[in-house]
Design a protein around this nucleic acid. Structure first.
Length: 210
DNA sequence: CGGCTGATCGTG
DNA sequence: ACGATCAGCCGA
């Protein structure tokens, strides 16, 4: 007997489309991570597209295929988790076909239920670098790529996983999103990307209200 | 709320 | 050296 959640898992065909379509469609979907501490579910509210070899903002720009970027070249539906600034992780979901290095950076989620909210708060609290936990965990539970990974227990151990098959890491249907509620803006933190820094490839939901 | 800065380390 | 970042601290 399968869990209802398993029946709603997004299939390969969802992810093997272009990175902008997948990014927009991911808004409102639920990222699920089953950890030893329990299952954490987050509704995706902000994403960014990284569009492959020609995108100066992408790790795969110029076809750069190394140990780190390898997962980006795998088939749509693969996870790409990497360490950033020596202390945080960023979580991406690869899009498109194999050898087409497009990916969607998950920038923000909100807890899908009360249990997830509690687990996110605990995970964020227990990882207090020097001293006390962050000031306002409640208001900023998972509203950033690094915070999101901490809140959902996502680490580099979750890199290069097939989200369409993994038993503990996947995406399911979520809330219905009116396309009119999707806003677009410039991607964050890629000032070095020249003209690509101005592309409106960041998508987010108007009003975090849900 | 906006700007500045230190922390920290795998990757190329 | 350099980040697809975060949190604390400052000033307005």
């Amino acid at each position: 007997m399968v869990k209802a959640e398993e029946r709603n898992r997004l299939p390969r065909e969802f992810f093997t489309r272009d990175g902008i379509t997948v990014a927009r469609e991911l808004l409102g979907k639920i990222l699920v991570h089953e950890t030893p501490e329990g299952t954490v579910r987050g509704v995706i509210t902000e994403v960014e597209s990284y569009m492959g070899e020609d995108d100066k903002g992408s790790h795969a720009y110029g076809g750069r295929r190394t140990g780190r970027t390898e997962p980006m070249f795998h088939i749509g539906g693969t996870s790409y988790v990497y360490l950033i600034y020596g202390m945080y992780c960023c979580m991406n979901i690869v899009a498109a076909a194999e050898d087409v290095p497009q990916a969607v950076l998950i920038r923000s989620v909100v807890p899908a239920d009360g249990e997830s909210r509690e687990r996110m708060a605990r995970l964020r609290s227990q990882r207090a670098p020097r001293g006390q936990a962050p000031r306002s965990i409640e208001k900023h539970l998972a509203d950033g790529p690094g915070k999101l990974c901490i809140a959902m227990g996502i680490t580099r151990a979750d890199n290069d996983q097939d989200l369409t098959r993994s038993g503990s890491f996947y995406v399911t249907e979520g809330i219905e999103v009116d396309p009119a509620r999707i806003l677009a803006g410039k991607r964050i933190g890629i000032d070095y990307a020249e003209e690509a820094a101005d592309f409106l490839w960041r998508f987010y939901l108007k009003e975090e209200g849900l």
